[in-house]
């Protein structure tokens, strides 16, 4: 399929208060799918999978350390992911560029450190206990 004149699908503006609308795939993954039709299909699939899993009354294993701690551990994992992603955007080659791209890369690298700090504190609050006997 020729996509030469097709507009690319861009990452959405996520309203944090409506974060649940964006469950499913990471935006860092979806941004690869610039074909708007494919992007929308994957976004909808991710949302559907999450909705079905959340609504269903399943017999899956219970979280041994409780729901809130389990959820926060997932958030910490995603923070570490974003720490790495921002670090990639701010890798030396990008930071050495002149102009706006170089500036943005250096900002991303600095913010990667801030995300790491947030993740470290949350991780520390959770502790190492995962509900094992």
């Amino acid at each position: 399929m020729s996509a030469g004149i097709q507009l690319a699908a861009g990452p959405p503006i996520v309203d944090p208060e409506a974060f649940h609308v964006f469950h499913g795939f990471r935006e860092t993954s979806l941004c690869l799918f610039t074909n708007p039709e494919h992007n929308a299909a994957l976004r909808a699939t991710g949302r559907l999978i999450y909705a079905m899993a959340s609504e269903g009354d399943n017999d899956w294993p219970a979280e041994p350390e409780g729901h809130p701690r389990h959820q926060l551990r997932a958030a910490v994992a995603d923070l570490h992911f974003l720490q790495g992603f921002l670090g990639m955007l701010g890798r030396p080659l990008e930071c050495s560029r002149e102009g706006h791209e170089g500036h943005l890369a250096r900002v991303a690298l600095r913010l990667s450190g801030q995300v790491a700090e947030i993740a470290a504190v949350l991780d520390g609050e959770l502790g190492a206990w995962r509900g094992e006997e």
């Binding site: 990452p11 959405p12 503006i13 996520v14 309203d15 944090p16 974060f19 964006f22 990471r26 935006e27 860092t28 979806l30 941004c31 958030a75 995603d78 923070l79 974003l82 992603f85 921002l86 955007l89 991303a108 995300v115």
Partner: peptide, 9 residues
């Protein structure tokens, strides 16, 4: 995309 994921978190 990173901004969008940060907003989600």
């Amino acid at each position: 995309a990173a901004v969008a994921d940060l907003r989600h978190l």
